[in-house]
Design a protein around this nucleic acid. Structure first.
Lengths: 226, 226
DNA sequence: TTGCTAATCATTGCCGACAATCGACAATGA
DNA sequence: TCATTGTCGATTGTCGGCAATGATTAGCAA
């Protein structure tokens, strides 16, 4: 079923691997971050190869790439496993994400263009609209997109790459704790406040808003995990 | 010449790939970070495989892992190349490194144990001794080790992994600009000041010291690059 | 039944070979 | 002279197979 392979996502890090293994890698990223492949689950090379209609070689290369990105763990002769969840890991992800986004905010204040700020505003509007109409998942997606836009405003490829990687793993936890999210109505409000602080170039205020937004937003999820 | 392969480094991220490809990966990391393989240089799979006495499969898997880590770039049917240097990239590395280490400093102030602080002090002594005896490379290595210790004090696996990755690429630039480093005598002094600030739990002071230390230390190198 | 040992099976690690593609150079034509 | 096209060698991408390792289960003895 080669048709299951998506047409090689154009924007995903610096990699442009030989279409086949690149497609397998992208396929696996999808399956991992959307929860089809669960944390800790084993990935059988032969099964996967048959499923995608390719041989094991590109599959193994794809797995090696994902191992390099940290999405899976490989134990020699035992197998490849989706990186498992843990409360400590989530705590670490949260803390590190706060650090990354604070950096993003500081840089955004220095170098964001009006156009980019406008784009962020548009995403926030979208978020507000989703919240108003009760579209829970839509609001969460908009929230994530807003964070991506914020990070892109920092104009740092390294930050961007690191954040994308982190966000991939982060989605695992979002998927696993989705029921613990409350107060999506506040999401847009908080983002709007952040945007205002960035526009006003109020560094310390913006930095503390983003921290509160992230920590507060996932406090419940952290509490209920394992 | 299988003997050229190092005995699978135990501490290097989450990976424990099937010894052979893991060894090849480690071998390549060495060659890349010590400058034997220069930025932009092509890596020939067949040559490398023959050189190490293995087949192309583990070589390709190793290259895929390094691609995931960002050390090399793969272009389909054209080849694998060591990630090239650029002034913009160095600028980005510096900025991002500052952000990471500032995070590390803040966390270290909160949770560093006396034992860890003592270990850092020992490395600084070592650094001072190297500088005094004119051991240039030794002092630079001690400096890097001090930064690693600092980062480890933050007790954040994500930070640690990200920093290690960044440091790998950073070494490329250090190797390329090694002649532009002056004032190694000040290195130990600056680290000592940082350690004192951490011990005194003076957050903002420690954060600004680490920033100055990094930015100032590589200003000359940045200037002279390309 | 329980615990240990050994054989069996599934799965991964590695290899050699073949197909696909690229880059360079020569041949052709305007 | 220059651009275009065709060919060839080199290199990469993929495949199927075999060996090595780990997990499972069957067999046996206490």
């Amino acid at each position: 079923m080669i048709s299951m392979l998506q047409p090689e996502k154009p924007v995903r890090g610096p990699i442009e691997r030989s279409s086949t293994s690149a497609k397998v890698a992208e396929y696996l990223r999808q399956r991992i971050t959307d929860g089809t492949l669960k944390p800790g689950q084993r990935i059988n090379e032969l099964t996967l190869a048959a499923e995608l209609g390719v041989s094991r070689s590109p599959v193994r290369e794809a797995l090696a790439m994902l191992a390099g990105e940290g999405l899976v763990r490989v134990t020699p002769y035992k197998g490849t496993f989706v990186t498992p969840l843990s409360r400590e890991r989530f705590r670490d992800l949260l803390d590190f994400r706060v650090a990354l986004e604070q950096f993003a905010v500081r840089r955004a204040i220095e170098r964001a263009t009006p156009k980019e700020l406008q784009r962020l505003a548009a995403v926030i509007d979208e978020m507000r609209e989703h919240a108003r109409s009760g579209n829970f998942l839509g609001a969460v997606e908009s929230d994530l997109r807003a964070h991506e836009v914020l990070v892109s405003m920092a104009a740092s490829p390294l930050l961007e790459q690191t954040f994308q990687q982190l966000l991939g793993e982060f989605r695992l936890y979002i998927a696993a704790t989705i029921r613990h999210y409350e107060g999506i109505d506040e999401l847009a409000t908080e983002h709007a406040a952040l945007l205002a602080a960035i526009r006003a170039r109020r560094r310390s205020r913006a930095v503390s808003i983003i921290e509160r937004h992230i920590v507060h937003g996932f406090a419940g999820a952290l509490e209920e995990l394992a």
